[in-house]
Design a protein around this nucleic acid. Structure first.
Lengths: 140, 140
DNA sequence: CAAGCAGTTTAGAATCGCTCTAATTTTATT
DNA sequence: AATAAAATTAGAGCGATTCTAAACTGCTTG
């Protein structure tokens, strides 16, 4: 039996923000819904900003940047650098890699199991590995 | 009075430019010498520009960018996207990967043999793999 | 449940890395 | 040397992102 006024999806999103230690403001909730409502996505700040506008969500561009960074800091998103001209944010924060299509600029996830990374060298000088990025750049 | 006598090292660099199909201009020669004189390096445009200034090599920033791109196009350099805020250029164009030190912004090469990349998935839709980038992000 | 305050949002200015423009200079060719 | 093509340059321009500082809002406390 589900409540009718508040959709389960909203509750989930609100929960997620709370759990992450982020105040569930109107703007963050709206953006989080856009980001997490469907399956995994790769978005740019500009792209999310436009999507918000299309959905009559009134947020400033600065807020989109703030939210993306806040979400990333709390591991709700992962930032990916493919191209020095823009940043991508991935809603899939699990262990996985990427195909990058050079002509279209699109990304596609590669599940971690699909690539065997063996013999990873230790980080030099007692440093710890924060993340391993694998990007397979392809073109037609 | 003439600039400087041509040394054997210059000849090598000059050869490299000629072989690549690039006119060995004063600026390209000077930059190539800075880049290729010692072992492998990772530079940013800004960094190379400053290094040039320090060595009394008079080049404009636009020329540094032009040269870096021309060299990259001719496979004398390889461009690496680590960080959406700037591009790095690597004088090592062979097959290899990178450590990236998050606090210092420095890169360190990892020879290809040190990582076993197995089961690489095929590029989807008949695309061909242009390059596989592996970046191990580390912090202290 | 009002007050207060830290945390958020915002518009617009500012910044940063990089590219473009169009005039000038160089290089390679005749 | 004359020519044409290519390269260099200063500075304007640009797109993505960050900053500023004023207004607002969610949360806790009395």
């Amino acid at each position: 039996m589900r409540a009718k006024k508040t959709s389960p999806a909203d509750l989930t999103v609100l929960e997620r923000l709370r759990t992450a230690g982020l105040r569930p403001t109107r703007q963050r909730l709206a953006l989080a819904k856009l980001l997490f409502a469907q399956g995994h996505r790769h978005v740019t700040a500009e792209g999310l900003f436009n999507e918000a506008k299309d959905n009559r969500v009134d947020v400033s561009l600065a807020t989109v940047y703030n939210a993306l960074h806040d979400f990333t800091e709390k591991s709700l998103l992962r930032e990916i650098s493919i191209d020095s001209s823009r940043s991508y944010f991935d809603t899939n924060v699990g262990d996985h890699y990427h195909f990058y299509f050079e002509q279209t600029g699109k990304l596609q996830d590669i599940p971690a199991e699909r690539i065997a990374l063996a013999n990873l060298p230790e980080a030099p000088g007692g440093a710890t590995v924060a993340r391993v990025d694998v990007i397979i750049r392809v073109r037609d």
